[in-house]
Design a protein around this nucleic acid. Structure first.
Lengths: 229, 229
DNA sequence: TTTACATAGTGTTGTTTTTACACTTTCATG
DNA sequence: CATGAAAGTGTAAAAACAACACTATGTAAA
């Protein structure tokens, strides 16, 4: 107890909405709180920001500590500041959303988290604090971004089939898409490189594998190109 | 000096990028700092967040105090957290952007601000702190939003002509638009109500005045309607 | 009072984009 | 070698977009 200021200060936290996609469903990573308040309840991973780190750094650190997740797409979402959002004291939280592939990372409970689990976005349990609100905001943002920026690839493995991509879009946006039109459009940009590999699975024709070409995307973006699906 | 915490805490500020449009040009409201650091330099209006107010409240309060602006469109932009963005100590700033009509409000210098002035966005002076960065982010956001949400009306008087609207779009987006196509599209949504009034000015044909219909917009939005210009 | 000037206002056509729609291919399995 | 299951492919009609130039209506100056 040795840090003293002239005026009272709010505490600062980061909270992360981590999305994953498992070939059929969009999921979110939640942790079971191991400490009060809301001990035993599900919550978004997150924690206090240290005074010598940026918010991005804090978000990555917390994700690593609480879930073992590393190297994922991470973007700031919104800063939540209701005066009573934390029962302990004034806490302002900067929310992030992250995209990853659940398969890549075995989740692991650590530090403050009693457990960490993936939940389908349609079956989220009651959440601590105002995390239900943060989650809703993140889902809305993800839906918006997916239409206008090529971030869907962050939810897929580096090599993927067009069917997987389409399923992802259908799952996130909650709509059905026409297979032929979807392929025509997504291929028309020339941002997907066909690989010399196919994905064989089950008793049916194997699918061509593609990878996203981020270099070409950057070039096009410079020229005012707008991704849209 | 009586507020003591177990861990060091960053100070929290809000900074506002206030856009205005004066019939030809997009402008930003800047204040001349009356106190150190960066005394005498131009900066975005803003200040410290009090522990008992939300960020939105803080932003509105600071705008009122420093520029006299009230009741304007205000939206959170991004939270900036570089460790060294303030030479005094660790300060994290939540940036907002606001839209208003410069004509409506005589700006007034008050409190911490030695002066407050509108600057065309193409002629912004050197700014204090990382405010140039915040400003660039805000301008980018404004351009993005203008295309996909009907926020342009916030920069115009309640009654406006289609020419004014088009000039606004051209000024903000930095492009030329075809008069006939622009009118066709903007009127096709049925969101502009023609008034029983014309705008007469100069030696030429007077222009029909319109107002934006926010109620109808909300209804359409429910049904999945997407505004786009 | 007439003329010049400035901005408001208006339709059509060719091009591009979007949508709707059904059958063939290729593999694994029984 | 027949069956099932997903992959892959083209066309035509409809809608949206882009390009384009003249008339209408007011004020002010000659």
């Amino acid at each position: 107890m040795k840090h003293t200021y002239e005026y009272p200060r709010a505490a600062l936290t980061v909270d992360c909405v981590v999305f994953g996609f498992d070939d059929t469903e969009l999921k979110v990573l939640l942790i079971e709180r191991g400490i009060a308040p809301f001990k035993g309840q599900w919550a978004l991973p997150g924690g206090f920001v240290r005074v010598d780190e940026t918010l991005d750094e804090a978000a990555r650190r917390e994700l690593m500590e609480e879930t073992g997740l590393k190297k994922l797409f991470l973007e700031q979402l919104y800063t939540f500041s209701s005066v009573d959002r934390d029962p302990r004291e004034r806490v302002i939280s900067v929310a992030y959303y992250a995209l990853t592939k659940p398969a890549d990372h075995r989740t692991q409970a650590t530090t403050d988290a009693a457990d960490a689990r993936w939940f389908p976005v349609r079956q989220i349990p009651a959440l601590a604090f105002d995390h239900a609100n943060i989650f809703a905001t993140a889902l809305q943002r993800l839906r918006g971004k997916l239409r206008y920026e090529p971030i869907g690839f962050e939810l897929l493995p580096p090599k993927f089939t067009l069917s997987q991509l389409q399923q992802l879009y259908e799952a996130v946006l909650g709509t059905d898409l026409d297979k032929r039109n979807f392929r025509k459009k997504v291929l028309s940009y020339g941002l997907l490189l066909p690989l010399d590999e196919t994905h064989r699975e089950g008793a049916h024709r194997p699918a061509q594998l593609f990878r996203f070409d981020p270099v070409r995307y950057e070039k096009l973006k410079q020229k005012g190109f707008l991704f849209e699906l």
